[in-house]
């Protein structure tokens, strides 16, 4: 099962085994990872599942979609080149070891 590493603002980490087909947001919420709020439950409408993905991981992700793009302009912490909505990142075998950084706040 692909692993995802969630890095908290204080540097501490959570590692989760995430079934393929599950989003980075869903896995975090199911395990109660603090720092992903995901109010809208994954419909790209709330911008409270914001994460940062650094290179080289960022390159292996599918491109930012239109809905995701406008939502990333509404995040509580500043948008950066690596900003993504974790509800739009669905795990595949290729993404094993993906590392996402959590912002200071989601609202």
């Amino acid at each position: 099962m692909p692993k995802v590493v969630y890095v908290h603002p204080d540097g501490s980490q959570d590692r989760l085994d995430v079934p393929e087909g599950t989003s980075v947001m869903q896995a975090a919420v199911a395990q109660g990872i603090v720092g992903i709020v995901a109010e809208c439950g994954g419909s790209a409408m709330c911008a409270t599942c914001h994460v940062y993905v650094d290179p080289p991981d960022a390159e292996s992700l599918p491109a930012v979609g239109a809905d995701e793009d406008e939502m990333l302009d509404c995040t509580a912490c500043p948008r950066e080149p690596g900003s993504r909505l974790s509800c739009r990142i669905v795990l595949t075998a290729d993404l094993d070891g993906l590392t996402v950084r959590l912002p200071e706040k989601q609202r």
């Binding site: 709020v37 109010e39 809208c40 439950g41 419909s43 509580a76 609202r107």
Partner: peptide, 12 residues
């Protein structure tokens, strides 16, 4: 700050 005034989930 994560209030629930707007609800949450599918009916957010």
């Amino acid at each position: 700050r994560a209030h629930v005034a707007f609800g949450g989930g599918p009916h957010f």
